[in-house]
Design a binder for these strands. Structure first.
Lengths: 154, 154
DNA sequence: CCAGATCGTTGGTTTGCACAAATAATCCGT
DNA sequence: ACGGATTATTTGTGCAAACCAACGATCTGG
């Protein structure tokens, strides 16, 4: 546990770098933990989102998950191949595919949740419940909005 | 929505996912902000570390930055090509390359710092100074140690 | 009915990063 | 002085992710 002390303290005083590093670590841990379920992190998130927000079109999923449409296609292909998810044509608009979580998908989702619980328990083992809650609150208030300057590029 | 179905937590209530996402955002913003300096994030961190911990061998840099030796070679090649850094053979051990920050590197570093300041200001615009300090404190207490299971593989 | 927009899909490109293997130069212990 | 270890380096491989262009099927407004 003292090995990290040799890392540059000053560089890690940069809270932006600290955030980036720990985000990467969290990401890697999630990936490893989900390996047992055979899912990628994004596939797990997709299942979570389907369970929360019910059957939904792919366009809406793209919007909700913030991934590229072509990426979502690959995600759903794998999920559907394993019968965790089903694509149904929307009778009202036959271009649309309504994505629904299957029963098998639901039960895999519980394993996903358990895996993520374990990761979080390990990541925040040095924080008590209040501190985790505080961390959560502060993280969710980080500005994720895209800079206006980036948009005015007409 | 309705509170009835709590089998799966909402995706962004997952603090681990929140951390991963915001870490990625922070990383991307840093990269964009450093584009003006012509440096990658890792190159910027390398300059920071050299300024803090003085001339240092590459082996020690590898240890401190937590990057692969081959990755560091590429980083230093680019930095040295732009005269921001200098590799000097250690007279005491001619296998070693002592990496020193040049004057040009030092002045570029101030631009790196300014860019990172700007990114952090924008990221945490909705947090006051105390909250940023709290966030920093909690982040630095996240468990980054490698899992024991991974170590007993010897 | 037609032109244009939308939806999902395919394919390809690029980038950043982690990891492994092999090599030349150099050091160190005996 | 020799063998084995260490240092920096080169090279290759794989993976996850962002991005872009184009296409067929389908819907919608006029």
């Amino acid at each position: 546990m003292t090995v990290e002390e040799t890392r540059s303290r000053r560089a890690m005083d940069r809270i932006g770098l600290l955030l980036a590093r720990h985000g990467g670590i969290s990401n890697a841990r999630m990936r490893d933990a989900l390996e047992a379920t055979g899912l990628s992190t994004r596939q797990g998130i997709t299942l979570m989102h389907l369970a929360e927000n019910g059957p939904i079109g792919q366009q809406a999923l793209v919007e909700a998950l913030g991934v590229d449409p072509s990426a979502l296609v690959a995600i759903l292909n794998d999920l559907e191949r394993d019968n965790l998810v089903e694509r149904r044509r929307d009778p009202a608009d036959r271009r649309r595919h309504i994505v629904v979580l299957t029963d098998a998908g639901g039960s895999v989702l519980t394993r996903v949740d358990a895996a993520m619980d374990a990761v979080e328990r390990e990541l925040f083992v040095h924080l008590d419940a209040d501190e985790v809650a505080t961390l959560h609150r502060l993280l969710s208030r980080i500005n994720t909005a895209v800079n206006d300057d980036a948009c005015r590029e007409v």
